[in-house]
Design a protein around this nucleic acid. Structure first.
Lengths: 194, 194
DNA sequence: GTCTATATGAAGATAGAC
DNA sequence: GTCTATCTTCATATAGAC
């Protein structure tokens, strides 16, 4: 019996289902706004059953963050494969905002809103959530370095992240995709003029 | 006995104390993160007593929002008195960010973070909180009109608001006042170049 | 208008049969 | 690994004496 997993195949599937539903609910309703009942209902598992996989709600969040990090990393690798030019890669980041207009307007940025929520009451968890920002900051900075802007790469990366966050907040508050697209156009011009 | 108030003078003071404490706590810990116990403890009133003044927690928030709106309006009127030139007035808005660096880094923007929190689970309340954004958007737009940019006044006002929000989010996430000041400098340059 | 005691409900978490 | 029943805690909210 080689490579026997710690949790069986069936268990893996259930666990993945819980994480997927929690990820979606945490995004749409917030972390505090999502209850265990919400998660078990969405995942179609039984109430007490969830504790077979996670000891606490915080543990579920950690699993969700791990998954998000993996997904974002895969996305960045895809951008790198598709675009050899660092300018094009930066533009890909901007286009991601334009393409996510509907979710951004309805629920805000999945990275920003979670960090904002956790930054108030749960500073310990916010430190984990910050890793999503770090991932994008470092990837963007790498592109600025490749553009020959090594000295200001970090500053430019954080500026671009901030612009993206500002657009997300305002577009979310006003639930306005046209506003979002107008601001994305401004950001495109900024990247193009670098 | 002329102008007898609906609530006595003593009651007015207690009520004001509750609102002041709730305003502070909602900002620092978030709306959901603040309990009645927190408020009565901070205000130094007795547990059930708070219901003499407010029927629900939501009513307390409405009172807090009303007070914030009044304070922001007073601030804008002060800026108008001190600066006849609309460019200087816009710069005042930017300087407010620089001057609030410590609170912004610790708790984020009081307008943005509240709207972001309420936008998820309590969309009804977020509509009330949005009024704070409207107040600044309209005031900023008025200054852009005065600058002879009537056609794009609304767009420019929302752009400036967005930039301010982006700076607040990133500075809050990274708890970094130097980063905040660097970004504010960029924003100053934008206003100066209008 | 002040204060104490308590109702009510929801949420996170656990125990244990199967 | 699946399912039911239940415990505990803490929140909002109320009742009613003073």
């Amino acid at each position: 019996m080689p490579d026997k997993p710690a949790i069986s195949r069936k268990g893996e599937k259930t666990r993945a289902e819980i994480v997927a539903c929690a990820k979606d609910l945490f995004y749409r309703r917030g972390y505090a706004g999502t209850s265990f009942s919400d998660i078990v209902e969405a995942a179609g598992v039984y109430r007490g059953n969830i504790y077979h996989y996670f000891k606490t709600k915080d543990e579920i969040l950690e699993a969700v963050l791990t998954q998000r990090i993996q997904e974002f990393r895969a996305l960045q690798e895809e951008w790198e494969r598709q675009c050899p030019d660092p300018s094009d890669r930066l533009m890909r980041f901007v286009e991601m905002i334009a393409q996510s207009e509907n979710e951004l307007v309805r629920f805000g940025c999945p990275i920003g809103t979670l960090n904002t929520e956790l930054g108030k009451a749960r500073h310990d968890l916010q430190c984990s959530a910050k890793a999503m920002f770090d991932l994008f900051r470092d990837w963007l900075a790498k592109q600025f370095v490749a553009l020959g802007r090594a000295a200001e790469a970090q500053r430019l990366a954080l500026h671009l992240l901030g612009r993206a966050q500002g657009i997300s907040v305002i577009a979310h508050v006003y639930q306005d995709t046209a506003l979002l697209q107008r601001e994305v156009a401004t950001l495109r011009a900024w990247v193009a003029g670098l």
